[in-house]
């Protein structure tokens, strides 16, 4: 009797737990999982850049079949050029429902942005792009996943992040930085990462070219089949009038590995960048 009651209680408990963790929109069998049952994000991903399309993307098309080359001459929105497009992308989470996909700056920040030039972009000087700009760079990243942490190795700007997934910040005091401090937790099949402790020296995504030390990013990673959807809610009460959301979709590029990207190696011609 006791055994039956216990088993029933356990079943109810497990059912509740499973219900609580059930993904909102994707069947559990559709994604790859780790031995601990969590979605398996490990591997190489890329959000943009010509190399994401495979080797043939760079071959000049033969005469008479020049559509891709002609198309490639088309302009790009400045936001995309800076490694972060606003809007578009995958369908967002409930947390981001109704949020704008472009930033609205406080009046002083509008004025300051007006005077900024491309050479003021930290990445032009080879500083790390920070979160979430680094996600939109035209280089691959590799995710290494363990039961207690996720490590993301970005080829762009030799950037890396170590993200605990148990909801606890690692270590004690840390100096504000370009990538801030990341604390991750699982919300069902969604990895939610809160990133704070930024240094106020990075540019945000899209048209956000100013950040303060109050800059905060809440990231959500989801596996949808073999695609990684990414969402970042950006908050900065020092710069913005309210939060906005940046979204991206990452896919697995053609077979590759993370290679060295030492930006300072040959960063010449800065003096000729006049705007």
């Amino acid at each position: 009797m006791f055994k039956l009651a216990s088993a029933a209680t356990l079943t109810i408990f497990m059912s509740s737990a499973l219900l609580a963790q059930a993904p909102a929109a994707q069947p559990a069998a559709a994604i790859k999982r780790m031995p601990d049952g969590k979605p398996d994000f490990s591997g190489i991903w890329q959000g943009g850049g010509i190399s994401a399309r495979g080797a043939t993307a760079n071959v000049v098309p033969p005469a008479g079949a020049a559509a891709p080359a002609a198309g490639a001459r088309g302009g790009a929105p400045p936001a995309a050029a800076r490694g972060g497009r606003g809007g578009g992308g995958p369908v967002g989470s409930q947390a981001s429902a109704g949020l704008p996909t472009t930033p609205t700056l406080q009046p002083w920040a509008v004025e300051k942005t007006r005077n900024l030039k491309n050479i003021d972009d930290p990445t032009v000087h080879c500083f790390q792009p920070g979160v979430p700009r680094v996600v939109g760079m035209p280089f691959p990243l590799e995710i290494v996943q363990t039961p207690s942490k996720i490590v993301i190795l970005y080829e762009a700007f030799r950037s890396y992040r170590i993200i605990p997934t148990d909801g606890k910040k690692v270590g004690g005091e840390s100096i504000p930085g370009y990538n801030g401090d990341s604390v991750g937790r699982w919300d069902g099949d969604t990895l939610v990462v809160e990133v704070t402790n930024f240094n106020g020296k990075i540019w945000g995504p899209g048209a956000m070219r100013i950040t303060s030390d109050k800059y905060k990013v809440t990231e959500r990673y989801n596996l949808v089949g073999d695609t990684l959807t990414y969402e970042a809610i950006i908050e900065d009460p020092g710069v913005l009038t309210g939060p906005f959301v940046y979204r991206a979709t990452l896919t697995r590029p053609a077979e590759t590995r993370i290679m060295e990207y030492e930006c300072l190696e040959n960063n010449i011609n800065l003096s000729s960048i006049v705007q």
């Binding site: 943009g48 850049g49 010509i50 994401a52 399309r53 993307a57 079949a65 559509a67 891709p68 080359a69 002609a70 198309g71 490639a72 001459r73 088309g74 790009a76 929105p77 995309a80 050029a81 800076r82 490694g83 491309n118 050479i119 972009d121 990445t123 032009v124 792009p129 939109g136 760079m137 035209p138 762009a156 930006c263 011609n269 800065l270 000729s272 960048i273 006049v274 705007q275």
Partner: peptide
């Protein structure tokens, strides 16, 4: 397919400007 390839290439190529503004330095 060709159209998709063209659109794809535009999207794929655009962010390669990430490091600096080509438009500032070069005249297309």
């Amino acid at each position: 397919t060709a159209l998709l390839a063209a659109v794809g290439l535009v999207l794929a190529v655009a962010p390669i400007w990430a490091h600096h503004s080509n438009a500032a330095q070069f005249d297309a």
